[in-house]
């Protein structure tokens, strides 16, 4: 952070009444927070109420915002010409992201919904990537079990879908 810059904090309040204080700049990763502050709200002691997101989930979101804000601020201070360092930092952040999002599907789902409602694009991306990772290499029935998807097709309907698009199901190796 640049010297002399005033430190502005904001408070996010979860649906179950838990408060989280963080740097305003970190909170601005959220489009929803950005919009709220832009219309002159949210800086007061009451904070910004975040509906539909519990404290358990919001605490994770705050960790993500803090990490990404810190990484971006550090990158700003770096020598712009040092490509190698930039690539290394980016890789390091990605590793942190993947570790962070290595969650089971219930928590992941809550964070995805929260990130989507708060408009945090990077976190939506990360959650979607993780869900895709969970689906990789699995059959339809394995995906249904893993992600809790209810099958509402009859077996005839499923057979018809498979028949309609042979390119999907034929083996190519």
């Amino acid at each position: 952070m640049a010297a002399g810059k005033p430190v502005v904090m904001v408070t996010l309040v979860s649906s179950d009444g838990q408060s989280f204080q963080l740097l305003e700049e970190a909170a601005l990763l959220s489009a929803m927070v950005r919009d709220t502050i832009q219309i002159g709200q949210g800086r007061g002691p009451a904070g910004i109420p975040i509906r539909n997101i519990t404290g358990q989930t919001l605490s994770m979101v705050v960790v993500y915002c803090n990490k990404h804000y810190t990484a971006a601020a550090a990158a700003d201070g770096d020598d712009a010409a040092d490509e190698e360092k930039k690539v290394a930092n980016k890789k390091q952040l990605r590793e942190w992201d993947e570790q962070f999002i290595n969650l089971e599907q219930d928590k992941l789902y809550d964070i995805l919904v929260a990130a989507n409602n708060l408009g945090i694009d990077g976190l939506v991306d990360l959650c979607c990537w993780r869900f895709a990772d969970m689906m990789k290499g699995k059959s339809a029935s394995e995906i249904r079990v893993k992600l809790g998807i209810r099958d509402d097709f009859t077996s005839e309907q499923r057979a018809q879908i498979e028949k309609d698009s042979p390119w999907v199901w034929s083996r190519t190796t």
Binding site: C128, W129, M135, A140, I161, E162, W169
Partner: peptide, 17 residues
């Protein structure tokens, strides 16, 4: 989209409606 594999993505057509 994040699957980066169109056939795998198309296979999800049978998951549910």
């Amino acid at each position: 989209d994040q699957l980066k594999d169109t056939r795998a993505a198309a296979r999800t057509s049978v998951l549910s409606r």
